[in-house]
Design a protein around this nucleic acid. Structure first.
Lengths: 236, 236
DNA sequence: TAACAAAAACGTCGTTATGACACTTAGATA
DNA sequence: TATCTAAGTGTCATAACGACGTTTTTGTTA
C-alpha cells in the first residue's frame, strides 16, 4: 500500500507539477520522473502517510491534500524500468502495491524545492510537457488534471496556487490555464467581483512598463459561505 | 485490502441503500447492518473486486460501480462487535485492512434481493433511517450520500435509479429526495425538457385515480453530448 | 520631452436562464 | 353526477450570460 502526491503549482505562465527525477545524474534524455510517493506505515492513515511522505521527499508541509482515488492495475509496476527500480529500492520488489493518490494546489513562488537536500531530485515541470512517467504515475497525473478541470467548472479554485496578493490578470490567466481555453477578460472580472471572493487592495504593481494592475486578496469568509450553498450555478 | 459497495435504490418514495444483516436470526433490536464488501484477491483490480464481491453477496451484476475513495482510519475495525465478527470470520482478524468504497445507482424495482440464497441477509433500507452500521460503514454511507448530492448539483443523475419508463413526477420526486429539498414542479419539468435528456412516450399510466401521467424515457445520446461539455450551468 | 508600447480597466446590449407563483385537466371512485 | 387526486401547463420580473472595443496608466525609447 502506498501513497502518491500530485502537487500543482502555477508560475503565472503554466500549470506545473512537482516531480522527482529518480536518477538526477542520468543524462536528461534518459530522465525518469515520478510523483512523490512511498509505502505507508502500518500505524498511520492514508492522509497521514501522504503528508509525511510529501514532507520527507520535498520538504513541503501544512498543505491541504485531497484524496484523488486508488489505483490498482495489475501491471502498474511492471514496466522494465520500474521493475529495475523496485529491485534496487524495495525489500519486496515483487509485492503487489496498490496506491492511493492525493493532490494539492500550492503557491509555487512560496515554495522553492531547489534548496538543500532536495535540490537535485525535486522540480516543477509543466503539466503539458509531460507525456510519460514512472509506474502508473502518468495515469495518476492525468486523473488529477481532469479532477482539477472538473472542479474549476463547479467552483472557483486555484487561490492556493497564487500568492497572498495577486492581480486579477494573474487569476484570469490561471483559470484559463486550468480550463484550457480562453475566458473573456471582462466577463471573468465581473464574475469574480460579483461573487465577492476577491477584494481590491490599495496597492499596485510597480515597475511594469504598462498600466500597473491592482492587487487583490482572497476573501475566505465569503468563499466559505458560497461553498456551503454549493456555488449554485457557478461555471464558465 | 477490501472493497465495500454502497448501492442506492429508489422506490418512488425514499432513497434506499442495499445492506446486509450480519446475523439474520438475531432479534431485530440487535441487528447489525453492513455494506456488501470483502477482502480483495491478489490478482484482481479494485474495480474487479468490487464487482465480484457485490455479485457474490447480492447477486447484482453488470452495474456501473464508481470509486468513492479509500478509508483508512486506524480504528475502523475496532468496535467490540466488529472485533468479535472478525475473529469469527477472518483468518487474520487482527490484520490492518484499508477499504476502498464504491457506489452505484440501480433500479430497485428491477432487482429484488429477496430471493434465493440472499433472502435473509440482503435488504433495502431507507438511507434516512440508518444511524449506525458495522465497522466504518456508516461513515462510508454518509460520504456516498454526500457524493450523490454533490453530483446532482452538477449534472442530472439518477436515471439509473428509475425504470426504463418513468414519469416526470417520479423523476421530480427522486431529485427532491436526493437533493433533500423541494424543487418547483414547473421549473423542474421545464429544465428537463429543455435539456432534451428525457423524451415523452405515447404511453400513459393506467388505473390511477387521477389524471394519468405520461411515461418518458431517458435519452442517452443527448445526455452524453451534454456530459462532454460538462453540463455548463446545470443546477438547481 | 514627446511619441510609443503594453497591459489594465471598464460598460453595454441582446439573449437566455432563473425562481416565484395558481389554475385547469383527466381519470377513477363514490 | 359530484368529488377527489395528482398531472400538466404559462407568465413575469429579475439575474446571469456571452460577445464585443476603447480608454487609461505606466515605463521605455527616440
Amino acid at each position: 500500500m502506498s501513497v502518491d502526491c500530485v502537487i500543482f503549482g502555477f508560475d503565472f505562465e503554466k500549470l506545473k507539477v512537482l516531480v522527482i527525477q529518480d536518477e538526477p545524474n542520468e543524462a536528461p534524455s534518459k530522465a525518469r520522473f515520478s510523483l512523490p510517493g512511498d509505502l505507508i506505515y502500518d500505524d498511520e492513515t492514508l492522509d497521514q502517510a501522504a503528508a509525511r511522505v510529501l514532507k520527507e521527499l520535498t520538504g513541503l508541509e501544512n498543505i491541504f491534500l485531497e484524496q484523488l482515488g486508488a489505483f490498482s492495475s495489475l501491471d502498474r509496476l511492471s514496466k522494465p524500468a520500474d521493475k529495475e527500480w523496485l529491485i534496487m529500492m524495495r525489500e519486496q520488489p515483487e509485492m503487489r502495491v496498490i496506491t492511493v493518490a492525493y493532490f494539492a494546489l500550492v503557491n509555487l513562488n512560496a515554495f522553492n524545492p531547489m534548496v538543500a537536500k532536495f535540490a537535485k531530485a525535486v522540480s516543477w515541470k509543466p503539466v503539458d510537457e509531460i507525456d510519460s512517467m514512472a509506474f502508473d504515475h502518468f495515469d495518476i497525473l492525468q486523473k488529477a488534471h481532469q479532477q482539477l478541470q472538473s472542479k474549476l467548472k463547479i467552483q472557483p479554485i486555484g487561490f492556493n496556487l497564487l500568492p497572498e496578493k495577486f492581480t486579477l490578470s494573474q487569476l484570469h490567466k490561471l483559470d484559463e490555464v486550468i480550463a484550457g481555453k480562453e475566458l473573456d477578460k471582462r466577463n471573468f472580472r465581473r464574475k469574480m467581483i460579483k461573487l465577492k471572493i476577491v477584494e481590491k487592495l490599495d496597492e499596485k504593481q510597480k515597475g511594469v512598463p504598462h498600466k500597473p494592475s491592482s492587487f487583490y486578496h482572497f476573501n475566505v469568509e465569503n468563499y466559505q459561505k458560497l461553498a456551503e450553498t454549493g456555488f449554485d450555478n457557478f461555471g464558465f
